[in-house]
Design a protein around this nucleic acid. Structure first.
Lengths: 211, 211
DNA sequence: TGGTGTGAACAACTTCACAGCG
DNA sequence: CGCTGTGAAGTTGTTCACACCA
C-alpha cells in the first residue's frame, strides 16, 4: 500500500483484533475471513482490511487470513513481541490493584518498580516482590530497571508534577489514571484512563434518554 | 442552533470543560473566553463554541462565558445535577480499589451495592459501609437500592455473563473494566475502560519511534 | 471593540463496490 | 468462485472566517 498516516483508531482496533484472534486460536480456528472477524469484533469488514493494508498484505485471496500468522503480525506491529517494563508511581488503592492485576502480565507488561513519597510505604515489599522506592530515586531506578512506561496513579493534584519528573528521567510513554489533562513536550506520549469521563458519558445518555 | 446529532466526542469534551471550569472557579476566575478555555483544555476555540452551540447559547458576545454559569449548564447537560447510584460487580483487587476511590464520590457517583459470587466475600462489609451481596440477589437489590449504573470489574471470561444479568435486571448503563468486547441490546449502553488497549498504543508508538 | 455563534471549507475517517488474484 | 486489497464515494467531525451583537 501507498505510504500514508495511520489513524490512532486503527491502532486501538489492532489491539482488539489481537484479542479476538487469541480467542480464535484457543478455539482451534485456523482460518478466518475479514467478514467473520469483523462481526466478532463489532466493526465493518472493509475496516479490517484497510487497517491491515497500512502495514502489508497478510491475507490470501479467496481464503481469508491464517489466524496464527495474522496474530503474530499484529503483535509484531504493536510491539508486543517483547516484554515491556512498567514503573508505577503512587501506591494507593488503585496503584496496588494495578500492580496485582494479572492481565498486564499475561500481555507482557511487567511492573519492575514502584514509587511513592510516603515514608510509611517506602521500603515495603509489594505482593509481586517489588520494593517501594522513594520517588526521589526515580532517575537512578529508571536506569537500573530500564523503565520504559510510567504508570501514574496519584491524585489529580500531583499528577502533572509527577509526570514532569518522569519526563526529566526520560520516560517517554506514560499512562495516566488521574482525572486531569496532562501536558508533555514533543517526543513524549500520554494515554489517559479516565473513569469519570466514561461515567459522565453514561450519565448524559441516561439523562437524555434517547435510544 | 438547528437540530442535529451530537458527536460522542462532544460529550467527552464537555466532561473535560467541566473539570477545567471547576478549577477556574476555585481560582476565582469569573469570566473566560473560548480562546483561553481552549488553550487550557488543549482544543481549538471554535470547537468549544460548536460543542456548546449544540445545546444553546451560553456566552456573551464581546465578553466570553461566565464560569459559574457555564459550569452549571454543562453539568445540567451531562446530567450531573443529581446523584447517581452505582452497583459494583466483582470485589477483587480492582473492584475494592474502585469502591474506595474518592473521585467518584466527589463527582456525585455513589456505590450503593456490591456483588460477588465468592461465599467468603458475601456478607462482609466494605470500607464504605456497603455489604457484599450474593450476585443471585441482583434483581432484588437493584430495586431496593435503585442501582442506575453497573460497574463490572470481573475477569474477562465472566464479564459478558455478568452483563447479561445486569441487562435482565434492567440496569441500562454499564461501565466495563474487563478486557473484552461486551455486547448489549439496543437501549443499553456500555463504556469500556481498557488499560491494555492504552498500553498497546504506547507500545506501538514506542516501537515505531516516530515523533 | 472584542468575542460569540455559525455557514462554509476542509480534513479525517469509514464504507462501498469491484478489479484482481489464489 | 470467493475473498482480499484498494480507489472512489460517502459520512462524520474539525477548523476557518466573518457577520453580528453586547
Amino acid at each position: 500500500m501507498k505510504f500514508s498516516k495511520i489513524p490512532e483508531a486503527t491502532i486501538t482496533r489492532l489491539s482488539n483484533y489481537s484479542r479476538n484472534l487469541e480467542e480464535l486460536l484457543s478455539e482451534n480456528i485456523n482460518v478466518i475471513s475479514s467478514e467473520k472477524l469483523a462481526t466478532r469484533c463489532g466493526v465493518n469488514s472493509a475496516q479490517i482490511r484497510k487497517d491491515l493494508a497500512y502495514f502489508g498484505e497478510f491475507g490470501v485471496r479467496g481464503v481469508g487470513y491464517y489466524v496464527q500468522n495474522l496474530l503474530f503480525e499484529i503483535k509484531r506491529i504493536l510491539g508486543l513481541n517483547k516484554e515491556w517494563n512498567l514503573g508505577l508511581v503512587g501506591i494507593g488503592n488503585l496503584g496496588s490493584a494495578l500492580i496485582a492485576h494479572e492481565n498486564f502480565l499475561r500481555q507482557g507488561y511487567h511492573f519492575v518498580a514502584a514509587f511513592d513519597n510516603d515514608p510509611v510505604k517506602i521500603g515495603k515489599k509489594l505482593p509481586n516482590g517489588v520494593k517501594v522506592e522513594n520517588i526521589d530515586n526515580l532517575e537512578e531506578v529508571k536506569k537500573r530497571e530500564n523503565i520504559e512506561i510510567g504508570v501514574v496513579s496519584t491524585s489529580a493534584g500531583t499528577a502533572q508534577a509527577i509526570v514532569n519528573r518522569l519526563i526529566k528521567a526520560d520516560i517517554r510513554a506514560i499512562i495516566n489514571f488521574a482525572p486531569v489533562q496532562i501536558k508533555v513536550p514533543p517526543g513524549f506520549r500520554v494515554e489517559n484512563v479516565d473513569f469519570t469521563v466514561k461515567l459522565d458519558s453514561l450519565a448524559y445518555h441516561l439523562t437524555s434518554e434517547e435510544d
